[in-house]
């Protein structure tokens, strides 16, 4: 029996201005289990990024229940959300989002420095180098992000996402800014991580990469309109 990692129940997200209300997500239910590799596809404006923001506790749902490892996180304070983000979630962004002023080492070490438990410098160093070795970037440890190629920057971003041993890896169009070769390499890396037991939830508009996932969701107008796996099971 797989362990439930994330659970969304009846989640809605409404963006309201003075004149208009936009329903980005509508009564959405989603369960992600340990070891899952979930891909979320859909056209522009369907709510993919909003869903990922809520999954990553970057934003709060307007209503509904959101559980991470059976803990209700629907209404956390900003500080509590930050702590859970730091301990349970790893992010990989389309535009890498590395901090230009910091070295590769410091970029990767950043989540550890925000950890509630103060880690020793040695421990930080060990964990950072281990993650950099995992993405084969140890030789660039003192470089600044702008001295690296796009593919290298994304590998650093993956190392940063992994360094805190997150419960789930959230991937937002990780290949969007990369050429096909680098994009494939990143996908291979994600697949390997998943095979090693890392739970991944990935937003992509590229069906080629979505096929790598074990669960493929399609989002339309803020609703999940198709779950390919479940559909297959039903058949």
């Amino acid at each position: 029996m797989k362990k439930l990692k994330l659970s969304l129940k009846n989640i809605t997200k409404v963006f309201a201005t003075q004149e208009v209300e936009t329903h980005a997500l509508q009564s959405l239910d989603l369960d992600i289990y340990a070891g899952d590799f979930v891909s979320i596809c859909g056209p522009s404006g369907c709510g993919k990024s909003t869903l990922l923001s809520i999954l990553g506790l970057l934003d709060l749902p307007s209503s509904g229940t959101f559980m991470i490892e059976n803990k209700d996180v629907s209404n956390l304070s900003l500080t509590e959300a930050a702590i859970i983000r730091n301990e349970k979630i790893g992010f990989i962004f389309q535009s890498f989002n590395l901090i230009d002023e910091l070295s590769v080492f410091e970029n990767v070490a950043l989540p550890l420095r925000y950890n509630q438990t103060a880690l020793s410098e040695k421990e930080i160093y060990d964990r950072v180098t281990k993650c950099l070795a995992r993405v084969d970037m140890c030789h660039r440890i003192q470089h600044k992000p702008n001295q690296l190629s796009g593919g290298q920057q994304q590998r650093i971003a993956i190392a940063r996402a992994l360094v805190g041993n997150p419960a789930i890896l959230l991937v937002d169009e990780a290949t969007g800014n990369l050429d096909a070769k680098n994009g494939d390499a990143v996908m291979t890396m994600l697949k390997e991580l998943n095979n090693e037991g890392t739970t991944i939830c990935m937003v992509t508009h590229d069906p080629r990469y979505a096929d790598h996932a074990t669960t493929r969701l399609h989002l339309m107008d803020g609703k999940i309109v198709a779950d390919a796996e479940r559909l297959a099971e039903l058949i």
């Binding site: 990553g56 970057l58 900003l78 500080t79 930050a82 702590i83 983000r85 730091n86 301990e87 992010f91 962004f93 989002n97 590395l98 901090i99 950043l110 989540p111 925000y114 950890n115 940063r160 805190g164």
Partner: peptide, 10 residues
């Protein structure tokens, strides 16, 4: 970015 990877408001 810092907030996304877990930096608290403090």
């Amino acid at each position: 970015i810092r907030m996304a990877i877990g930096a608290t408001p403090k």
